[in-house]
Amino acid sequence: MTDPTALTRLCPPPQTQPAPIDWGRIEAELDMRLPEDYKQLAAAYGPGSYGGDYITIYHPHGVTLYVNLTGPMSSRIREYLQRDYDQGTYPVPYDPQHLFAIGGTEGGQKLFWITEPVNAPDSWRVAINEDKGSRWFTYDGNLTNFLVAVISGEIDNLPFSNLLGLPACFTPSVPPPFEVGDPPMRAPVDTEDIRNWARANGFQVPPRGRIPRQVREAWEQAHPI
Rank of each mutant, 00 (worst) to 15 (best):
T5M: 14
A6C: 06
A6L: 09
L7I: 04
Q15F: 10
Q15S: 09
T16K: 14
P18N: 13
P18L: 15
W23Y: 04
G24T: 09
G24E: 14
I26P: 02
I26K: 06
I26N: 03
E27W: 09
A28Q: 12
E29L: 14
E29D: 10
D31T: 06
L34V: 03
L41H: 05
A42D: 01
A44S: 10
G46R: 14
P47N: 14
G48V: 00
S49R: 12
Y50G: 02
G51C: 07
G52L: 05
D53T: 01
D53Y: 07
Y54H: 10
Y58A: 02
H61P: 01
V63F: 08
V67K: 06
V67S: 05
L69V: 03
P72L: 12
R76Y: 08
I77V: 04
E79T: 00
Q87S: 15
G88Y: 14
T89N: 11
V92P: 03
V92F: 09
P93Y: 11
D95I: 10
Q97W: 08
Q97R: 13
F100H: 06
A101N: 07
G108C: 05
Q109N: 07
F112G: 00
E116S: 07
V118E: 08
P121F: 15
D122M: 14
D122G: 13
S123T: 07
W124S: 01
V126D: 01
E130L: 00
G133K: 11
F137Q: 04
F137M: 00
Y139Q: 00
G141C: 08
N142R: 04
N142W: 06
F146C: 04
L147R: 10
A149I: 01
I151G: 05
S152D: 05
N162F: 03
L163C: 00
C169Q: 06
T171W: 07
P177R: 15
P177Y: 12
V180C: 09
G181K: 13
D182K: 08
M185L: 12
A187E: 09
R195C: 12
R199S: 10
F203S: 05
P207E: 09
R210K: 13
I211C: 08
R213Y: 08
Q214E: 11
Q214L: 14
E217C: 12
W219N: 02
E220G: 04
